[in-house]
Design a protein around this nucleic acid. Structure first.
Lengths: 156, 156
DNA sequence: GTTATCCCGACCGCAGTGGTAGGATTTAGA
DNA sequence: TCTAAATCCTACCACTGCGGTCGGGATAAC
């Protein structure tokens, strides 16, 4: 089964593309959609999620576009994925409760026995989150730069 | 977003329930469905996946039922989850290729740049799999026994 | 005013999921 | 030998979310 939707894939690619450009210099979605060969109309929806999560900033009008809200080395991938696919939970019954980072499993709330499976899902969740938290956007940008011969879509 | 479907939840609960019984003694699905309050007809589909993966054995007819194919401490949860939800992959484009445990990302095969996101998904996948591999069914059974039969010893 | 761009909401086909229905087959036991 | 209990199998269904499109509105540069 797939852990993340391709919204996440698209969103991460988009963020990497923004990270390759100079800060504060707006990049149009059209440029990104052509560089990464992704459907523009769908990217609009994806980038809207990133904007709501304060990960990117935008400018409207001609010569507008998007840029990173923070330096790439201060953006961890758990934020990005959370913005796109929601809070990472191994099961639907793992719902974040308010401001705490507590989780509860609704299945066994009635008979009070407590999930024996909860331990497992908690471990898995921990594995995913720690993997995401220790990866910064800057790392991906660096990786992307190394693997592309040309500085790609700059200029324009 | 949810990593696993509730098929996995049901299947793990089922496995734990089997692990609580003596080995080789068949347990009927009906008993499990009543104990765990899960729909019997759906459990039949779930347990069929576990049987195909050689994780449980079965006996038909009156007084038939299911039991673990191996001792619980020799069953790791990555096997169980794989049987229920398929191979764990962070993205759809991570497909197991034949007998190898190689993975490939189809998105960037054409322009040859290689996924910058691939590094991220590989890390996540590693986090999930290692969490699953280091958890045995025996641990969950033990956890379940402590939390249901002995309310007095519950601490913390 | 034109053009480029962000922004927004509605819509759609598809696949997968959780779940049901109904029966066929096998076996233990009266 | 009959019956009840159980596995097994196949088809079906409603719902949801996802990937994606479309049309249009707002806004800013030139």
């Amino acid at each position: 089964m797939a852990i993340f939707s391709s919204r996440s894939e698209y969103g991460v690619r988009l963020m990497v593309e923004l990270g390759r450009q100079e800060a504060e210099r707006p990049v149009s979605l059209k440029a990104i959609s052509e560089a990464e060969n992704l459907p523009l109309a769908y990217l609009e929806q994806v980038v809207a999620l990133l904007r709501k999560a304060d990960l990117v900033k935008s400018a409207r009008g001609a010569h507008g576009g998007y840029w990173l809200a923070r330096p790439a080395d201060q953006i961890t991938m758990d934020e990005v994925v959370a913005a796109l696919d929601g809070a990472v939970a191994p099961m639907e019954c793992f719902a974040p409760t308010g401001g705490d980072d507590r989780i509860l499993c609704s299945h066994k709330a009635d008979d009070g026995t407590g999930c024996s499976t909860k331990m497992l899902w908690t471990r898995v969740q921990g594995g995913v989150i720690s993997s995401l938290k220790r990866t910064t956007l800057a790392e991906l940008v660096e990786f992307s730069r190394r693997n592309t011969r040309e500085p790609s879509t700059v200029a324009a």
